[in-house]
Amino acid sequence: MDTKTYIESGVIESYVLGMADAQEAAELEQLRRQHPEIDQAVLAFENALEKTAMAGAVAPRPGVKQQLLAELDFEKAGSSRVVSLSPWRYVAAASILLLVASAALNIYYYNQFKNTASAYQALLLEKNSLFAENQNIQTKALDLFNNMQVMSDPAMIKVSMKGVPGKENTLATVFWDSKSKDVYLLPNQLPKAAPDKQYQLWAIVDGKPVDAGLIADCNGLCKMKNIPAAAMFAITLEKKGGSPVPTLDQMYVAGKVG
């Protein structure tokens, strides 16, 4: 490729001045990438053209710039038509813009408000349920603390009731207050009773079983009946509501006092 001839052909000038046809332009754009001297020639003519135009610069009519600044600010993405507006029309146009913007903001803030309100409701609900749960746990903690107080009382007699043969995995403990004769039961390990059944505690007094109370769902220690004297305690599974006499083949645990 004879770049010198190309540079002297006038096609570069024709291209820069916007007079080259599409084919010439495409060819030049390709050639300038391949040949730095062609690229240089293009740039040199562009610079010379700019200098010539700069040297001939004519001050524009005053006000063209202001009009442009006002117009371009006014309609950044509108049509390219040059129009001059009277001040009142600017005011009117600005008011409409403001109105539209404010309406849009209203919608935006209303949506924000709705979102916030529903988030607040959800939080309120969560707070209430947490509070209830907390109350619940506090009650349980207090019960457990009271239980511990009961169990650690020096007057308390502890009777461990182990599983009878065939029910070795079961365990329950009686705490018997030697002063007040109150009986408390801790059901350490008792299988869950069927819905129509209930565990019943018995005190064995002079070889006879005495009803010491039904075991309900209790938190930790269950307070049973007051038993003045007993040699032994045992638990049987009875029908719901209890029985006057124990069903002996349904005995789960038993333990001697002392």
Partner: peptide
């Protein structure tokens, strides 16, 4: 605008 309006106006 300040830099180029004059040159563009000349063309």
């Amino acid at each position: 605008y300040d830099n180029y309006s004059g040159a563009l106006l000349s063309i």
